[in-house]
Amino acid sequence: MDIQVYIALSLTLFTIGIVGVLVRRNAIIIFMCVELMLNAVNLLLVAFSKMHAASPAVKALPTYASDAQIFVFFIMVVAAAEVSVGLAIIVMMYRNIHSVDVNFLNRLKN
C-alpha cells in the first residue's frame, strides 16, 4: 500500500474530528472528537514507521522503525492522563451550570 493512501485516511479522520469540534456544542462530544484526532495521528505515525521499515537505507540505525511506535505508546499515556483531568473538569462544569453546553461558558466575555 502506498503511503499516500495512509496519509489520506489519517487526514480524513483528522478533518472529521475538526468538523466535530466546530459543529457540536456538547463538551463531551468535543472531547471525544479530540480523541479521534489523536488516533488519526497515531495511525499516521505507525504507517510512517512501517514505511521506514520497508526502505533499506535506514536499516543501519538500531531502532529504525520502533521509535514511532514508542511515540504512539507515549501519546496513549498522555491521552489517558488528559481524559481523567478533562472529564473531571466537565463533571465540575455540569455541577456548577447544570449543562454541558459550551455556549454557556461565556463568563469571561465581558
Binding site: M1, D2, I3, Q4, Y6, I7, A8, L11, T15, V46, A47, S49, K50, M51, A53, A54, S55, Y64, A65, S66, Q69
Partner: peptide, 22 residues
C-alpha cells in the same frame, strides 16, 4: 490537504503483514 499530498510523487510503500518493528 488531500490535493497537496496527491501532488507529491514519493515512491514509498508501507510494509504490511511482515516486519518485526511492532
Amino acid at each position: 490537504l488531500i490535493s497537496a499530498i496527491m501532488r507529491i510523487d514519493v515512491e514509498q510503500v508501507v510494509q504490511m503483514k511482515t516486519g518485526d518493528a511492532g
